[in-house]
Simulated assay, not measured.
Amino acid sequence: MVGVSKRVEAPSQGNREFTMTYANFAHIRDIAYDLTGITLSDHKQNMIYGRLARRLRALGLSSFDDYCNLLSEDSPELHEFINAITTNLTAFFRENHHFDFLKTTAFPNIIRKNMASKRLRIWSAGCSTGEEPYSIAMTLSATAGFSQWNAKILATDLDSNVVDKGRRGIYQEDRCTGIPNEYTRYLKRNPSTGEIKIREDVQEKIAFKQLNLLHQWPMKGPFDIIFCRNVVIYFDQETQKKLFARYHKMLAEGGYLFIGHSENLNRVSNDFTSLGKTMYQKK
C-alpha cells in the first residue's frame, strides 16, 4: 500500500451533493494504488469526487462512507471503481512523429530483420478507446511489404469500457479530424448518423483485451514494437522501473518503445537507447 502522504485538508465542500472527507479520499487513494499502481496526489481530490459521485448516484448511496465500505476485497464494485478513476485522453495520430517514424524507419527495419519469419507483433499498452492502435494499424496497412505477413496488434487497457468502445471501432466525425488524408481510405462514414467506422480489414489486425499492467501478462511475446504513451505518468518511480524492466524482457532484440511526450526514462531505465522525441530502442 502507498505510504501516507502529508495531509492536505479536503477542498471546501460548498454545495456538494455528497460529503467526501480526507479520510474517504485517503482510503480511495490507497485502494487505487493497490489495484492499479496509480498514484493520486492530494490535489486530485476534486477530480476523484466528480468521477465517483456518479457511482454513488447509480448505486443509490448517500455518502462516501457508504461507498468506501463497499470497496471491500472481491467486491463487484471494484471493476466500476477502476473504470471511473482511470483517465482516457487520446486522439488519432497523436504525436504524429511517432507514426512517421514507424513508416520511414521502424517498419522498413523490421521487414529486413524479420523477412524469414514474416512475423510482426505490436502492443498498444494503454490503448484507451482505440485511436492509438487504429492509427498504428492504418500506418501498417499503408506500408508496402506486409501483405503476406503474420502481422498483429494487441491493444490493452485497464478500463473495460474503453476497450469495448475500441473493439467496436465507431467514432463521432469530430474525433477523426486528426487522421491524415492518406489514411482516410480506411474509414467508412455512415451518412445517416455521421459516425465513422474503421474499415474491417484494419480492425481485423487488432485484438482488444482488458489488462492490468501490474498483474501477470498472459502473452508470451516477443513484441517488435510497444507503445506505452501517457500511462506511466500516473505511477510512482518504483512502479515505473518495474514496468519498463518487464517491457524490456517482452521486446524482441532491437525492438522499439514509444512513450508519451511528458515522459522519459531518466532515472527509470538504462535498458533502452534514446532515438529522440520519446522514441527508444532496446539495447
Rank of each mutant, 00 (worst) to 15 (best):
D164A: 15
L56S: 08
K209C: 10
V268K: 07
V8S: 14
F18I: 02
S117A: 14
C127G: 06
Y67M: 10
M20Q: 07
S128L: 08
E182C: 12
R55P: 09
V2K: 12
R168V: 12
L120Y: 04
D201T: 06
V162A: 11
P218R: 09
R94S: 06
D34S: 14
G50A: 02
T104P: 00
F93D: 00
M47Y: 02
M250I: 02
C127L: 06
Y256H: 09
L61T: 03
G130T: 08
Y280K: 02
K197N: 11
K152S: 09
Q210Y: 07
V162W: 01
E95P: 00
L140F: 01
K152G: 11
R29K: 10
K6C: 14
I31R: 10
R121Q: 13
L56N: 05
M47Q: 05
S124Y: 01
K44V: 12
K283A: 14
G145D: 02
A125G: 03
G145V: 00
R29V: 04
S141P: 01
K242H: 12
P218L: 10
L214D: 05
D174K: 15
M47F: 08
R54Y: 03
I153R: 00
F18C: 08
L265I: 04
E9G: 04
G169H: 04
Y22E: 15
K220N: 12
S147I: 10
G255Q: 08
S135M: 05
S262L: 04
